[in-house]
Design a protein around this nucleic acid. Structure first.
Lengths: 198, 198
DNA sequence: TACGTTATTGACCAAGCGGTCAATAACTTG
DNA sequence: CAAGTTATTGACCGCTTGGTCAATAACGTA
């Protein structure tokens, strides 16, 4: 009965995501209107406002990021450690690409207050989810005998989240592909050492 | 002859820095007026506007950050590698402290456009400066024989900038002291391994 | 083809923004 | 103590902001 929408919701979120990636929450409602092609009111009807649309975009970004990492670290014939290696090298290229924008999750991380607000909750969950994926792959490596029996899979997983975040920021600072690749290879050496000097 | 100022410039910059650390460039002129105690016009006279004040704060933040790292990695009897270790462990504690705010440099990194604007230039310089300090210390370690002769000191230096940036973000996401310390120890294993699996 | 429902459109609004102005105050120096 | 210079103060301004409203359009259904 009702008048049908002229837009595809996921397309709108995707366009909005680019705008938010470029300008963060400081992106203007007008930017969004221009990027999505919708009118203000339609945007408001469909999503509820700028902030809500940001969360929606953030959620999609997170879904996509975890999907991508999941796929990169998933079974494909190579050993778990080889998959992590390939993943890190691809990240180095990705992060050093000149048109790469900082991920919404990282943006949200910086803009989050540390309190219990929705932004902080969302970013925290995002980090934990990513760490979970790394942990799974690392656990497989350990079962394979590619990591020492007493390797701390949990902290290593968080370590990989940290180093990828750091590489992302460095890419923003203009660090080029060669250096970032070298950094990725350095980072991987963590998996080869035997014991921490305590 | 002129009427003297009622404020100390460095104090104003310091107060402003906190506000910017908390809210980024989105901090309002009113926030700054409240935090510094100066009137708008005085702020304007002394610094030239919000953006200029931000740059001033960013510059101080950068100076302080490099000073701190320099001191931590400087000569103090311990070996270069031990100094790096101590530094990383202190960073883990610092970044996981609950009232810690994200550094202005990291903020600027995220908000920079990647173009040639002043923000990007400043952050790039900041990263390079930090990497330089790490490189110096690592070079000493190599001369000491604590690192293999063929270790790539330059990329390792950038690696340490990356992992500390990542740890900073994770601290923002609520990762606690224990986990962040474990991550720091993981990160250090890079210096113990012998050869990269190529 | 008339009706009910929702989408779209463009005008509109109050609040908050960064910044400015003009008047006044405080100090040093002659 | 008068003159010159800069600081401070509070009122003010034009613009942009996120959001709203009322009118109209487009569809399925009866």
């Amino acid at each position: 009965m009702p008048r049908p929408r002229k837009f595809v919701e996921s397309d709108v979120v995707s366009s909005a995501s680019e705008v938010f990636a470029a300008h963060g929450l400081a992106a203007t409602l007008d930017d969004l209107v221009r990027a999505t092609g919708l009118g203000k009111q339609s945007l408001y009807n469909a999503f509820g406002g700028k902030r809500e649309l940001f969360f929606r975009a953030l959620s999609e970004d997170r879904k996509e990021a975890t999907r991508a990492v999941s796929e990169a670290l998933g079974h494909d014939g190579a050993s778990p450690l080889e998959r992590i290696r390939g993943h890190m090298l691809r990240m180095a290229i990705e992060f050093s690409s000149s048109d790469r924008r900082v991920s919404l999750t990282t943006r949200a991380l910086v803009e989050s207050t540390g309190e219990e607000d929705p932004l902080s909750t969302a970013t925290k969950a995002s980090i934990e989810q990513l760490a979970g994926i790394y942990a799974q792959c690392l656990e497989h490596a350990r079962e394979n005998g590619d990591l020492p029996e007493d390797a701390n899979v949990q902290s290593l997983a968080v370590y990989f989240v940290a180093i990828t975040r750091g590489m992302e920021l460095l890419g923003r600072a203009g660090v080029g592909r060669a250096v970032l690749t070298a950094v990725a290879l350095d980072a991987l050496r963590v998996l080869h050492g035997q014991r921490m000097g305590d």
